[in-house]
Simulated assay, not measured.
Amino acid sequence: MKKYALFLICFNLTFADSFLFHMENDVINDTDRHLTNNMKLSWMYDNMDSEYYDSFNFLINHDIYTPDDIKSKNISDYDMPYAGYIKTEYNFYKFTNNYYHSLGLILGHIGKYAYAQELQEGLHSILPANDPQGWDNQIGDKTIYGVSYDFGHRLYKKEFEKNKIDFSYNFYTELSNAKRDLLTILSFRYGNNYPDNFINSQINLQKTNGWDIAFNIYYEYLDYFYILDEYKDQYNINRDKDFFGEGIKFNYYNGNSIYSIKFDQMNTALQDKDYDRWVGLSYTYIFD
């Protein structure tokens, strides 16, 4: 399995047009709870010679979930289970300068073979954080499969003498045996000499030197989530289905490289109705 994963990464790095690494953590929230860490590896293949799609994207996404009370080993104290979730998405994009459609195929795994415990222990050896005590209680193995659909639309853009702005939105939905949801993002962006892309930072990406800053508003309707809903009778789970949030993202473009930092917050929709906050760092490289 590890040899196959290494081969897959090397193969994608050889033939992809751009590569993105993203990681975000709730260290800014001074907690280890709920979605406590997210990591993405993404390869984009542009200018595909097909009448049906313009770009192809291969994405690996890894999530770590822990309850609010990480010091307890008693599951009755948990507002969600310990869980690791790793999934791959195979996305086919059709786009113009002002909109895109994407159809994705999802294949993933929830359970010990997501290696969430090992990854979190490695992160905690770097970050100042307590060691969670309940990984022996993580939920069992489950194979995940499904589809996703993503639509983005730029409503407005205007260029000034030195800077420019745009306003866009997108809808993303996942229909799988792990999750049924609808995520909406409204985004207002301002900057100088940034690429003429939007929402998805790898679509039609061009090398440039500049910067932008975006303010984003999020709404997610989470109809079903396996990690919560299949275990609500065993754990102390009482959730809403609506999530609201906002965030700020800054991108710096330097030729082949893009450096990004973002700050997001969303209501947890669990017992205390508090906000979870994350800081995220990304690096994107455009291959010649």
Rank of each mutant, 00 (worst) to 15 (best):
H62D: 06
Y99L: 14
D150Y: 11
D150K: 11
N256V: 01
S55H: 04
G247K: 04
D264I: 09
N192L: 01
D63K: 10
K87P: 01
Y172E: 14
T14M: 12
M80V: 07
L127K: 01
Y99N: 15
I106W: 03
T208C: 09
Y85K: 02
K158M: 14
F56K: 07
T36Y: 02
F7H: 05
Y90F: 15
G245R: 01
Y149T: 01
T88R: 00
D26G: 13
G255L: 03
I110F: 07
S201V: 08
S260W: 04
D17G: 08
F287M: 12
F225E: 11
D166S: 03
R154D: 06
Y52E: 06
R33T: 07
I86P: 04
P128H: 02
L103A: 00
D274T: 10
S72R: 12
K2I: 10
I261H: 04
T88V: 00
Y113I: 01
I165Y: 03
P81D: 13
N57V: 06
D288F: 05
S257N: 13
T88I: 00
I64T: 07
F215E: 06
P67I: 13
D242H: 10
L205E: 04
M44G: 05
D264A: 06
K112N: 02
H22C: 05
K73S: 13
I9H: 13
L186H: 00
I75Y: 03
S187Q: 11
N163M: 10
G280S: 14
N238H: 15
Q138C: 07
Y93D: 04
G108H: 01
I261L: 14
Y253I: 01
D26C: 12
K2R: 10
E159Q: 08
N38H: 08
N91S: 10
T173Y: 12
Q138E: 15
Y169M: 14
E246K: 15
I258D: 01
R239D: 02
N238K: 15
S176D: 00
E161C: 08
Y99H: 14
Y78N: 01
C10P: 11
D32R: 05
N74C: 09
A214Q: 01
E230C: 04
A5W: 09
D63Y: 15
S282K: 12
K2S: 08
L107H: 09
K3L: 15
V279Q: 10
Y52H: 11
L59C: 01
L175N: 07
N251Y: 03
E220D: 15
Y172V: 08
D233W: 02
D54V: 03
F56M: 07
R277S: 06
K87R: 14
G152N: 06
I237M: 09
S257Q: 05
E24Q: 15
A214V: 01
Q133F: 00
Y52N: 10
P128V: 03
L105N: 06
D69V: 15
N38K: 12
P67L: 10
Q234C: 00
N254R: 09
N12T: 13
L13N: 12
Y145A: 14
T31C: 02
G247A: 12
